[in-house]
């Protein structure tokens, strides 16, 4: 069989391709792959400095699982993620539904809703702590005084930050719906609710899928806002003095374990980070598989 003649572009790509791929591959290997693998190894080590790690097997994982604060942070994070994911998606879908229509002022509203997403997490945390405390101080309390305030404070803040971003994805989803389908539904006499549930939502599964995934991973990985708004407070203290930070999420728990003053915490924090990674990755994969199945239906 005659070998297909390569064009001049294909020839140069095959000759010089490595030059263009090389830097990004090197950056990926240095900035992600190596730290990731090294971090994985460190989860099985006892160390003070990364360069002097000693292999200790699974003891860090045992300590991580027996840490009541870590177990609590997992529960808190899971509940937080379910609530925030639901609220963010429902609200952003609603906003997108109205703003996808070409009504007056749409562009202004889209911009306004998107803007909170441009503010960094730490700034947002301090900003909202002032807003919440400004309000709660009228009742002689603070967002740090009650874990319910902390929980709902975090939910409100994350919704405010992320609804605009998800809205953009949903608007793009609405725009991809074929106009003739909507027209056909109208001719067939479908009412607004039927059009929404039978035509629009089934056509928007890819957008819903990506938004759910983003909200899920963002909820689980929340760190800056948690640190700035509550820093884990209030604290429940047992009679023996052991304490659990009521509004501490998993990422903050890992951070606090690592940067606690005793060096024993470093390996345990690494182990917690590995558990955290497996959890987020598994949840993400399950959720993607479920929504992919819906996409194919």
């Amino acid at each position: 069989m005659k070998k297909r003649e390569l064009t001049i572009y294909q020839k140069s790509i095959s000759k010089w391709g490595w030059l263009f791929l090389g830097p990004i591959m090197a950056a990926f290997a240095i900035g992600f792959l190596w730290p990731f693998l090294h971090g994985l190894y460190l989860a099985f080590c006892d160390f003070r400095l990364v360069s002097e790690a000693k292999f200790t097997g699974f003891s860090n994982f045992e300590k991580a699982f027996s840490d009541e604060g870590f177990r609590h942070s997992f529960l808190f994070t899971a509940i937080f993620t379910i609530v925030s994911m639901t609220l963010i998606n429902v609200l952003s879908f609603m906003v997108a539904y109205y703003l996808a229509k070409e009504i007056k002022g749409t562009k202004l509203f889209r911009t306004v809703f998107f803007m909170p997403n441009l503010i960094g997490g730490i700034v947002l945390g301090y900003l909202w702590s002032m807003i919440f405390d400004g309000f709660l101080s009228m009742f002689d309390t603070s967002v740090l005084m009650d874990s319910r305030f902390g929980f709902w404070g975090l939910i409100i803040m994350l919704c405010w930050q992320q609804i605009g971003y998800m809205m953009i994805i949903y608007i793009a989803g609405f725009k991809t719906i074929d106009g003739s389908m909507l027209e056909a539904a109208k001719i067939d006499g479908a009412n607004g609710r039927q059009t929404l549930f039978k035509v629009m939502i089934p056509n928007m599964i890819p957008a819903i899928s990506i938004c759910l995934f983003l909200a899920l991973s963002n909820g689980f990985k929340l760190f800056d806002q948690n640190l700035a708004l509550t820093a884990g407070l209030p604290i429940t203290m047992s009679v023996d003095g052991s304490m659990v930070k009521d509004t501490e999420m998993m990422a903050l728990n890992i951070y606090n374990t690592f940067y606690g003053q005793s060096s024993f915490g470093h390996g345990v924090a690494q182990a917690k980070a590995v558990i955290f990674f497996i959890l987020v990755a598994a949840l993400g994969i399950i959720q993607l598989k479920l929504t992919n199945r819906r996409e194919k239906v």
């Binding site: 740090l144 820093a231 209030p234 604290i235 203290m237 003095g241 940067y259 606690g260 003053q261």
Partner: peptide
């Protein structure tokens, strides 16, 4: 564990 200890006191 100074930071942790003080956080408990503050709370």
């Amino acid at each position: 564990n100074v930071d942790n200890y003080r956080a408990g006191l503050v709370s």
